[in-house]
Design a protein around this nucleic acid. Sequence first.
DNA 1: TTTGTCAAGAGGTGGG
DNA 2: CCCACCTCTTGACAAA
Length: 238
Amino acid sequence: MDFHGFAEHALELRLSTTSSVAENTTNPIKKPSPSSDHCLEPSLTLALSGDSCGGSSFSIASAKREREVPSEESERGGENTSGEEDEDGGVNGKKKLRLTKAQSGLLEEAFKLHTTLNPKQKQELARDLKLRPRQVEVWFQNRRARTKLKQTEVDCEYLKRCCKTLTDENQRLRQEVQELKAQKVSPALYMQLPTTTLTVCPSCEQIGDTKSATSKNPCTKKPSFLTPSLVHRQLVDN
DNA sequence: TTTGTCAAGAGGTGGG
DNA sequence: CCCACCTCTTGACAAA
């Protein structure tokens, strides 16, 4: 994909709208990672904010990080200044870089296409945005993190609803038990029921059908599922 | 002043 | 070992 041509196109689109660019939850991270497998069983982690080691944040930038393309002033004027540019002025007061709407928009469009970038795409995007590749890389990292966080919140809400449903069902069943007890169905009587009513195949642990009992399924007894209402009826019959 | 957002640094991890 | 990525964290900044 030619990011360069795409970049120019997307840039125009973004400039023509004021919609928020931050909330894109339609692009889950496709590339699985050991800690991001939460589609079916979302996990939540709470992290304590431990002793800050952020003092090193202002130390020398990692030598590994590339600085091929120096960041330029954006069309927003002095608002968009890179921290590295302080080196030019010799002032070490760290100025936070704020991407312009056009830059953010273009990055969002790129993210919709690919949640990760290969080196070539990164270079092209950085060139189009007049940013350093490292800045594009960081933006994608943070964007993936935001997407994942959003998904975690969605999963959390889903689990809350599940919990509520189960709680309600639990409550309903307890209520049913109470009603049965009120009808003098004692646990002792409960235990005196014919054993066949409680049978579950010990080998396959399934409730089978007598007619379908074969060599594959040696179950010969016809079990029945025991519900509180069934218990009550059988006791009445007895 | 408080709070939320976001760019960026640091450290850990896994694959090649 | 290098690289790309993830996670946690910090601090700048804007808005409430």
